[in-house]
């Protein structure tokens, strides 16, 4: 029996395909190399900076990345690139470039602030206490280098408040007050917020009052004081401060709504309705005022009026109004 031996011939198709593929990839590599030769680092960087100034962060990131590939460096370059990445939500990469910026210039307070902000934003998304504290550390450094920058104090306070360290936040707000460079009323108001978050309403009220005394036109401080008296079950004092807020700024709708809410809680619906109507005369598209007015009408049995205002509240963006309408049996289309 003859055994036929077959010679193993190379598959022509496979060989041709492989050659085509190699030539194809080599061609693309050649195009890429030639293109790169034609790119000027300074031109690309200038484009990136233009996009950055015009707040077109997506395009700025693309061109900063290319500039980096072409060898761009420097504290300002890394800081701008980091800011762009922060704006796009890429905080991890932003931190990396801020660190590069610090390596180039370790005494720039703005870079420390940006790094602190990136950690803060990351912490807000992940609710990670360590990131909040890391942010605070960088912000402390920023403040030590530039004690007259208000935003650093504001952000460091937010960092500590976000991880329930209100006392630390107060310490920094007090330091801002002692420096004498910033709005006293604003920082008193913030200290009041820290006490409010700890449910120490009396102390909060005292700081809100200090804010009022520093700036009599600071309408939010009046409302905040009123809120604290509501928490302390002293509606009469709360009403006094809400009325003061209206006297200071009659166009501040929140005051009217809060007065209305006090009457609503006391089941004095007719008084509440009159205050919500006043609120709507200031801003007819307030979802909160429309919603509360709708609820008040519902409580006194005027269902048609209730539905009218609840619908308006829903169209203005109130989810509670949609839920309330469903309870009445009305589905919005």
């Amino acid at each position: 029996m003859k055994i036929l031996k077959k010679k193993n011939k190379p598959d022509k198709n496979f060989v041709i395909s492989a050659i085509i593929t190699i030539c194809f990839i080599a061609g693309l590599a050649g195009v890429y190399y030639l293109r790169n030769l034609g790119y000027s680092k300074d031109v690309i960087l200038q484009k990136a900076n233009n996009y950055f100034i015009n707040e077109r962060y997506f395009m700025a990131a693309k061109y900063y990345d290319k500039s980096y590939d072409l060898g761009a460096s420097g504290a300002e370059f890394f800081r701008n690139y980091g800011i762009v990445l922060s704006k796009l939500g890429n905080y991890s990469s932003a931190e990396k470039y801020f660190q590069h910026s610090l390596e180039a210039d370790g005494s720039n307070s703005e870079t420390y602030y940006c790094l602190g902000d990136a950690f803060y934003q990351k912490a807000v998304n992940s609710n990670n206490k360590d990131d909040f504290l890391q942010a605070a550390r960088y912000l402390e450094k920023a403040i030590s280098l530039a004690p007259d920058v208000e935003k650093s104090y504001l952000l460091i306070g937010l960092c500590y408040r976000s991880c329930a360290m209100q006392e630390n936040a107060r310490a920094w707000y007090r330091r801002a007050l002692l420096s004498g460079n910033f709005s006293q009323s604003g920082f008193y108001n913030l200290i009041g917020h820290t006490f409010r978050e700890e449910e120490r309403y009396l102390e909060a009220a005292s700081y809100y009052k200090r804010a009022m005394e520093s700036d009599y036109s600071f309408v939010a401080a009046y409302c905040n004081t009123g809120d604290m008296y509501v928490k302390l079950n002293d509606n009469a004092s709360a009403l006094t401060y809400y009325n003061k807020a209206i006297a200071v700024n009659p166009d501040f709708i929140v005051s009217y709504i809060k007065i209305g809410s006090i009457y609503f809680d006391q089941k004095l619906y007719n008084e509440a309705i009159s205050w919500y109507l006043k609120a709507l005369s200031v801003n007819p598209d307030s979802d909160k005022a429309n919603y509360m007015l709708g609820l008040s009408y519902k409580e006194i049995g005027r269902i048609n009026d209730a539905v009218e205002y609840l619908k308006k509240a829903a169209y203005c963006g109130s989810d509670d109004a949609i839920y309330e309408l469903r309870n009445i049996g009305i589905e919005l289309r």
Binding site: D11, N13, F14, I16, S17, I20, T21, I25, F58, A61, K62, D65, K66, L85, L88, G89, N90, Y91, S92, S93
Partner: peptide
């Protein structure tokens, strides 16, 4: 072209990996 289809698909995947690298450089988003 490419008698062995899995080989072509593997080559295509490798090219996709390279393209991903360049796409990612353009889409600097988290």
């Amino acid at each position: 072209f490419y008698t062995y289809k899995p080989v072509f698909l593997a080559v295509l995947y490798c090219m996709s990996a390279l393209l991903y690298y360049f796409i990612n450089k353009q889409l600097i988003l988290t």
